[in-house]
Amino acid sequence: MAFEYIEIERVEKLTKKEFIENYYKPQKPVVITNQIEDWPAFTKWNFTFLREVAGDKKVPLYDNRKTDHTKKVNEPDFIMTMAEYIDILQKGPTHLRIFLYNLMKDVPSMKDDMKWPQLGLRLLKSLPLVFFGGQNAKVFMHYDIDFPNIFHFHFEGKKQCFLVDPKETKYMYRLPYSWICNEDIDFDNPDFEKFPALKNVKPYITTLKHGEMLYMPEGWWHYMKYLTPGFSLSLRSLAGRPANLLKGFANVAFNRYYDNWMRKRKGQAWLDYKDAEAIRRTNALLEKESA
């Protein structure tokens, strides 16, 4: 048994008014095509270009291993040069990926290749983050720590994107003091016997191609799977809803530090507790709703 997916709406280039009224205010995801054809990046950005301008830059790499108590939140598994990583990507399938990397801080000239979308959001110009993955690489299901609104632009190949409405967070087996779910969940092949609350989740799905943009509203869960080697650029704005702004502040200012402290203090026992507690809390809620 698998999820019943909802296809994310796809539209042509939007005006500011259309975006705000139809997608931002109702907090509805959307794929926008033909939005960045006037960016130099649309024709320039590929692996050959990146090897030329950023080949010598040291990049943070992650694989598909579960959270390690010896590492801090978002601490990379490996470090290598961009050129070495691109070589790996082009040789064949790999789980290695780049996550939350501010490439333009290291290569400022790349900012000249893009334009900041004029869609009514105040984007954080200091945080244009890039994400890379090889064929079959997967990004674990999570929502962003600071509850931003995200414009996610894909380059090279295809990437499948799965989104879950934050209204369904109570069914997602979210770990305490975290913004990820129980890592034993396989969202390609969910085990509804072990994780019965997932039956109440109706994920959204789309496949992004080169130059297409996905809008992800505040607090939406997302899981990405690279169908081919590729990379993406995310531009973000602060949460517009006060409740989300406060939750994001609590995550950044307290929860991540407490989680890191408990990993040092309790080790693997802390991670085991969080896994078990996520299951206990979620299944208890499910039983209460069924009563």
Rank of each mutant, 00 (worst) to 15 (best):
A54Q: 10
L100F: 11
T94K: 02
I79G: 08
N136C: 09
F249E: 09
I6V: 11
D113H: 10
L14P: 08
S126P: 15
Y273V: 04
P229Y: 06
H142F: 00
K16C: 06
G230T: 02
F42G: 07
I150E: 06
D68L: 00
E52M: 13
Y226Q: 06
L271C: 01
E12R: 10
K13E: 02
T169E: 11
V107Q: 09
P108K: 10
K138V: 08
E7F: 12
F3Q: 00
K194S: 09
R65A: 05
K111H: 11
D56M: 14
T67K: 14
A276G: 13
P108D: 05
M141S: 04
S234Y: 07
D191E: 05
T48E: 15
G211A: 02
M110W: 14
D272R: 10
K105L: 08
A243Q: 15
Y143Q: 00
Y215Q: 07
N200M: 09
P148V: 03
K264P: 13
P196C: 01
M80H: 07
K17Y: 15
N102E: 03
W39G: 04
R97F: 06
A197R: 09
P40M: 07
I205P: 10
W270R: 10
D188W: 08
K274S: 06
P148F: 04
M82S: 05
N22P: 07
Q118V: 13
H154E: 02
F3D: 00
G211V: 04
C161H: 11
Q268I: 14
N255S: 11
K66G: 11
Y223K: 02
S232R: 03
R236H: 09
I36W: 12
K209S: 13
F78K: 07
P203I: 07
K28P: 13
H69M: 06
